[in-house]
Amino acid sequence: MDFNFTDDQEALRDAVRKWVDRSYTFERRNAIVKAGGFDRAVYGELAELGLAGLYVAEEHGGMGMGPVEAMVVMEELGRGIVMEPLKHTLVASGTIGAYAPEDVKAQWLPKIASGEALVVLAHQERAARYNLHKCETQASQAGDAWTVTGSKSIVPAGDHADAFIVPAVANGKLALFVVERQAQGVATRGYGTQDGSRAAEVTLNKAPAQLLTLDGITALEHAVDVGIAATCAEGVGALDKTMGLTADYMNTRKQFGVALSTFQALRHRMADMKMQLELARSMSYYASLKLNATPSERRRALSRAKYQLGVSMRFIGQNSVQLHGGIGVTDEYAGSHYFKALTQLEMAFGDTLHHLGEVSERMQDTAGVFA
């Protein structure tokens, strides 16, 4: 199999990397964190690069690209631990593009592609524990109009988003709806998260809603898998940068008059971290390449990938802090922010233990050493 990227994909990577290096400096990121964890101007810059329209068809003003291009972009944003929720834009645009009726596509996709509208998935509930089938939010229909009542937790940039994709139970079956943040009956409570980004609790009280699809569980599982693939790629970028910061520190920090990188035991530790990075990278490729597979195959693949990314993020993050010593957890040093970002990514769209359980449940008769 050819794992080389095309010239267009490399050009896309180069454009995003240059933007991160030039425009999303550590100082600018710190200022955004202090201001609340979300900057609409930064999101607008990402949209100007065309990134908000990666999954939007050209007929709706997007770039019409696929999972590999999204992976390339998210890796580079991960290297800069960019907080603005582009991966949730990919989730929303991919879900609307694949499952929504034509009038909903025409209404939302052009605005998403241009950056005019930020639409995010609001699916987590307090009692669900990552189980997509558990949903207490209810939808009611009166004629052609729908309303939604319930609560959603940890909605990315929830108090800044223009609309939410909301799973709710309609006539005993899960469905997906689009709910505008400014609609009557919608209330948000924003807060900062561990990595400095922003999330919100969203409360819906008979909020007017637009039906996206009645086949909610199929669409929601696909949406979450898109999010997992993007999270894996973002994690690889953050891991790569963490490794670079750690190597630079070991080459410059001296102990007993020599650089830390000369100590064999520490070099072995770095070799183990590098192995975990490459395992994560290969599984991120696997996740993105499986996004268009059949649902059962796709779900198995994405859980496998997220489990390995969780293991790698925990291993590399913790070892990086240990190799740095005290400076590794100080707020002034970039490495501590990568550690916090990796810790949060490990829990996004299902933590490591959850996906280990998913992998176990989806094992087939042919699984095992002697298969």
Score class of each variant (00 low, 15 high):
residue 10 E to Q: 06
residue 12 L to S: 01
residue 13 R to T: 03
residue 13 R to E: 09
residue 14 D to S: 12
residue 18 K to N: 12
residue 19 W to Y: 08
residue 20 V to N: 11
residue 23 S to K: 14
residue 23 S to H: 12
residue 36 G to A: 14
residue 36 G to S: 11
residue 41 A to N: 14
residue 45 E to T: 10
residue 48 E to P: 00
residue 49 L to G: 11
residue 49 L to N: 07
residue 50 G to C: 11
residue 63 M to W: 15
residue 66 G to N: 13
residue 72 V to C: 11
residue 76 E to A: 14
residue 89 T to C: 08
residue 89 T to S: 13
residue 99 Y to E: 08
residue 101 P to W: 08
residue 104 V to K: 06
residue 107 Q to R: 15
residue 115 G to Y: 00
residue 119 V to Q: 00
residue 120 V to A: 03
residue 120 V to M: 03
residue 120 V to L: 06
residue 123 H to Y: 10
residue 123 H to V: 08
residue 125 E to N: 07
residue 125 E to Y: 12
residue 126 R to V: 15
residue 127 A to N: 10
residue 136 E to R: 13
residue 141 Q to N: 07
residue 141 Q to Y: 04
residue 143 G to L: 11
residue 147 T to K: 00
residue 148 V to E: 02
residue 153 S to R: 08
residue 156 P to E: 11
residue 161 A to Y: 02
residue 163 A to S: 15
residue 165 I to C: 06
residue 166 V to A: 01
residue 172 G to A: 14
residue 177 F to T: 01
residue 178 V to F: 06
residue 179 V to P: 00
residue 183 A to S: 15
residue 187 A to H: 08
residue 192 G to Y: 05
residue 193 T to Y: 03
residue 197 S to D: 04
residue 201 E to V: 11
residue 201 E to I: 12
residue 202 V to G: 04
residue 203 T to E: 11
residue 207 A to N: 05
residue 209 A to W: 01
residue 210 Q to H: 10
residue 216 G to W: 05
residue 216 G to Y: 06
residue 217 I to Y: 05
residue 218 T to Q: 14
residue 220 L to D: 02
residue 223 A to I: 08
residue 229 A to T: 07
residue 237 G to D: 09
residue 255 Q to K: 08
residue 256 F to R: 03
residue 259 A to C: 14
residue 263 F to A: 02
residue 263 F to T: 03
residue 265 A to V: 09
residue 271 A to I: 13
residue 275 M to K: 15
residue 276 Q to E: 12
residue 277 L to E: 04
residue 288 S to H: 12
residue 290 K to L: 10
residue 291 L to Y: 03
residue 293 A to V: 07
residue 295 P to R: 08
residue 298 R to M: 10
residue 300 R to L: 11
residue 314 R to V: 01
residue 317 G to M: 01
residue 318 Q to G: 04
residue 322 Q to G: 02
residue 324 H to M: 10
residue 328 G to A: 03
residue 334 A to P: 04
residue 341 A to C: 13
residue 344 Q to G: 05
residue 346 E to V: 03
residue 346 E to R: 09
residue 355 H to V: 00
residue 356 L to I: 03
residue 359 V to C: 04
residue 362 R to S: 09
residue 363 M to P: 00
residue 363 M to L: 10
residue 366 T to D: 11
residue 366 T to A: 14
residue 368 G to C: 06
residue 369 V to H: 11
